[in-house]
C-alpha cells in the first residue's frame, strides 16, 4: 500500500527541478519512458503478487496416501500435470523475455533520438568549472559574442545547441524539466540540443560529483520569447554601466585596487581577469555563486566578505578590504545590470 501510494506522493511535490513535469520535447520523451517503465513493470509486479496470493490462499489439496503406498509413490510423475506446468512456465518465460526485449528497444530508441548529433540554431559554449558554469554565446560576428555565467537565456521554440566542455574535472549538466544529463569532459566537446516550448525559469544542477561544492553548482535556464531574448542579448553585449553615484564610484575604484581585479572581468573597465566569472552584468542575474544565493546587495556583500562561509573550498579567496570598501563594492556590482 505504501509502495503504491509513494509515486503519487512524489509527483505531488511541487519542487522546480522536476523530471516528471517536462517542458521540452526531449524531457517529454524521457518522462514518457519513465511512465512506461513504471506502468508496465508495476502491472507485472501486481499480477505476480496477486497470483502468489491466490496460490497461498488456495493451497493444494493433497490426497491422503493410499493404503500400502510407499513414500516414493508421492514423488511419482503425473504426465498430465507435468505437461500443463511446462506450458505455464514456458509461456511466463516467453513473456518475461518479451518484456525485457520491448523495454530495451524502447530505451534504446529514446537514447538514439536523444543523442543524435544535430547542430542548428543558437549555439552556446558551456564550460564547467569548479564550481560554476562559464557561458559563451557564439556568433559568426565577433562583436555579437556574449560572455556570462551561470544563467543561460534561451529563446523559446528555437533549437539551441549547447557545446559542453570542462576545464578541470568532469561535470554533468542536468536540467530535469528540459533534458537528460550530459557530461562535460575535459579535453572533448559534447553537444546537447535543447528545445524549450514554454517560457519560464528552469533550474539545472551539476549531476556528476566534481568536488567539495558539487551540490552548490547550480544554474538557471531562462526561456523567453525571441524578442525578449534579443533584448537581453543586446544588453549583455554592451559594456558595463559606468558608476552613477559616489558610492558606486568608490566601489568601482576599490574593485580595481583590490584582488577582485585579478580574476574577474568587467568589460569597459580595466578589470580583465579571466579565471573567475565575468561580472560585466552581474546585477542582471538572478543568483550568485552558481545558484547558491539570490542576487541581492546583501548576499553580494556576504559572499565577498566570506566566500568560504557560503561555499567552503571555493577558489574565491578571502580578501582584505577596508570596512567602507565592502559596501561600496557590493553597491557597484549590484548596479551592473
Amino acid at each position: 500500500m505504501v509502495a503504491l501510494s509513494l509515486p503519487s506522493v512524489l509527483t505531488g511535490c511541487e519542487r522546480w527541478p522536476d523530471a516528471l513535469d517536462p517542458k521540452a520535447p526531449e524531457a517529454h520523451d524521457i518522462a514518457w519512458l519513465i511512465w512506461t517503465f513504471t506502468g508496465l513493470l508495476g502491472a507485472i509486479w501486481l499480477a505476480v503478487v496477486i497470483a502468489m496470493l491466490i496460490a497461498i490462499r488456495g493451497g493444494r489439496r493433497v490426497a491422503p496416501p493410499a493404503a500400502g503406498a510407499t513414500p516414493l509413490d508421492a514423488l511419482a510423475l503425473h504426465p498430465a500435470g507435468e505437461r500443463s506446468r511446462t506450458v505455464i512456465v514456458g509461456v511466463l518465460g516467453g513473456l518475461t523475455a518479451l518484456t525485457v526485449l520491448v523495454l530495451t528497444g524502447l530505451s534504446y530508441a529514446t537514447q538514439r533520438s536523444l543523442f543524435a548529433p544535430r547542430q542548428e540554431g543558437l549555439s552556446i559554449l558551456v564550460t564547467g568549472k569548479q564550481w560554476w558554469w562559464e557561458l559563451q554565446y557564439e556568433d559568426a560576428d565577433p562583436s555579437r559574442i556574449v560572455e556570462t555565467a551561470n544563467e543561460i537565456h534561451v529563446p523559446v521554440n528555437v533549437p539551441v545547441t549547447l557545446k559542453l566542455e570542462a576545464s578541470d574535472v568532469i561535470h554533468s549538466l542536468w536540467v530535469p524539466r528540459l533534458m537528460g544529463k550530459e557530461d562535460l569532459i575535459p579535453g572533448r566537446q559534447n553537444v546537447k540540443r535543447v528545445f524549450v516550448t514554454q517560457p519560464g525559469v528552469y533550474r539545472g544542477q551539476c549531476a556528476e560529483f566534481c568536488g567539495q561544492q558539487h551540490a552548490h553548482m547550480g544554474l538557471l535556464i531562462v526561456a523567453e520569447p525571441m524578442a525578449d531574448f534579443e533584448r537581453w542579448r543586446d544588453r549583455q553585449r554592451a559594456e558595463a554601466a559606468s558608476p552613477s553615484s559616489d558610492e558606486q564610484q568608490a566601489g568601482h575604484d576599490a574593485f580595481l585596487k583590490r584582488s577582485c581585479v585579478m580574476c574577474h572581468q568587467i568589460r569597459g573597465t580595466d578589470a580583465g581577469g579571466r579565471s573567475g566569472p565575468d561580472l560585466t552584468h552581474v546585477g542582471s542575474r538572478m543568483t550568485l555563486a552558481a545558484g547558491t544565493l539570490p542576487l541581492t546587495r546583501g548576499s553580494l556583500a556576504a559572499w565577498i566578505v566570506d566566500p568560504h562561509g557560503v561555499k567552503p573550498g571555493v577558489d574565491m579567496p578571502l580578501t582584505k578590504l577596508e570596512p567602507d570598501e565592502l559596501n561600496a563594492i557590493a553597491a557597484y556590482l549590484e548596479s551592473l545590470k
Binding site: 585596487k257 583590490r258 584582488s259 581585479v261 585579478m262 579567496p317 578571502l318 580578501t319 582584505k320
Partner: peptide, 8 residues
C-alpha cells in the same frame, strides 16, 4: 601587494 592575498 594588495592584489594577491598574502596566503596565495
Amino acid at each position: 601587494r594588495g592584489k594577491i592575498p598574502d596566503e596565495q
